[in-house]
Simulated assay, not measured.
Amino acid sequence: MEIETFLGERAGVARASTLRGAGFPRTYLDKALAAGRIVRIRRGIYSTPREAGAFGMALQHNALLTCLSAAPTYRLWTLHEASSVHLSPGHKAAPPGTRVHGRCPHPAHPWLPVAGLADVLIHSLRCLPTVESLVMLQCAAQRGDITLEFLRRKLPGNRNARARSVLDSVIPRADSILEVLANYHFRRAGLHVRRHAEIPGVGEVDFLIEDCLVVETDGDTHLEPRQVKKDRKRNNATLVGGHLGLRFGYADVVHHPEQMVAKVLEVLELSRQGAFSAR
């Protein structure tokens, strides 16, 4: 395994002892440094050049990365990469062009200039659009890294009302970002939604809406030939079993959720009008 791949699986950063334990001796690290393949961001800590910029900025200004800029460190789901560096500089001034957050009252990362997970999520809830903070929160909560009850206690008062409302949109289990977002948009539209419903002859589906419409959200794996054949069989079984069915991909769910919801509402209205009844 190349060192870039190894670091990429660890948010782009690792201790020297971790690298040596993985089979990258000191001579290898020195050669990789000289070639510009890796960067030493502080003594005993190495990073990919791409990640080193944000870490280096935080170290230079004695600040902590937080919010969206800290998401890779904790391997949180995200919709977009940070367009600017999110920093918590304490009482110090932050460099121009950065997104400044408040102080971090919780313990920081043990060896990186990164805020603790609790502060990262609280900052994201106060800073990011709802869907972007929701996917980060969903990832951490369902892994058991943090509890919603803990965060709710940390977000009192009227000024945190919007942040607390995001907590209510976290679901017990989501297999992908698409499920989180689709569930949010369907419920926001006032639809009755059952997640991971079991349909006879079909198996578990992502959503059963209004007890008649099966909705599946398809990631990249659904484009693989074997999965395409499986999905075709499930689509047929859905219709044979008496349910309607729709499928939506990444672009539908992430970039055009209003169009996705409109199609669901249109099919439900046609069903109410008897458009799919046997003649």
Rank of each mutant, 00 (worst) to 15 (best):
E4Q: 12
F6P: 03
E9T: 11
R10A: 06
R10M: 04
R10C: 08
V13C: 06
A14S: 12
A16S: 13
A16K: 06
S17K: 09
S17L: 06
L19F: 01
R20W: 00
A22V: 06
G23Q: 04
P25D: 05
R26L: 11
T27Q: 12
T27R: 15
K31M: 06
A32C: 13
A32G: 10
L33D: 07
L33Y: 11
L33T: 06
A35E: 10
R37T: 09
I41F: 01
R42L: 07
R42D: 14
R43Y: 12
I45F: 05
Y46V: 01
T48M: 05
T48D: 03
A52V: 12
A54G: 13
F55W: 04
G56W: 03
L59G: 08
Q60C: 06
A63L: 05
L64D: 00
R75S: 09
W77F: 08
L79Y: 00
H80P: 00
A82D: 04
S84D: 12
H91S: 08
T98Y: 01
P107S: 08
H109F: 04
L112M: 05
P113K: 03
V114N: 03
D119H: 02
D119S: 08
D119W: 02
V120A: 01
H123S: 03
L125M: 09
C127K: 01
L128D: 01
L128E: 03
T130Q: 12
V131L: 12
E132S: 12
V135P: 00
L137P: 01
L137I: 06
Q138A: 08
C139E: 09
A140H: 02
L148W: 02
F150K: 13
L155I: 09
L155E: 10
L155V: 11
G157E: 13
N160V: 13
A161Q: 15
R162K: 13
R164M: 10
R164N: 11
S165H: 15
L167I: 08
S169F: 11
V170S: 02
I171M: 14
P172E: 10
E179W: 05
A182M: 11
Y184N: 10
H185K: 09
F186K: 02
R188I: 06
A189I: 01
L191T: 09
V193D: 07
V193H: 04
R195Q: 14
I199S: 09
I199V: 14
G201R: 07
V202H: 02
D206L: 09
F207V: 02
F207G: 00
I209R: 05
I209W: 07
I209H: 06
E210I: 07
C212Y: 07
L213H: 09
L213C: 10
L213M: 08
V215W: 00
T217A: 11
T217Q: 06
G219K: 14
T221I: 15
H222N: 11
E224F: 15
R232E: 08
R232V: 00
L239K: 13
L244D: 05
G245I: 14
G245A: 15
Y250A: 11
V253L: 07
H256Q: 14
E258A: 15
Q259W: 10
M260S: 03
K263T: 13
K263R: 15
L265M: 12
L268T: 08
L270P: 05
S271E: 14
Q273N: 14
Q273C: 13
Q273V: 11
G274V: 06
G274S: 10
A275T: 08
A275E: 12
A275Y: 15
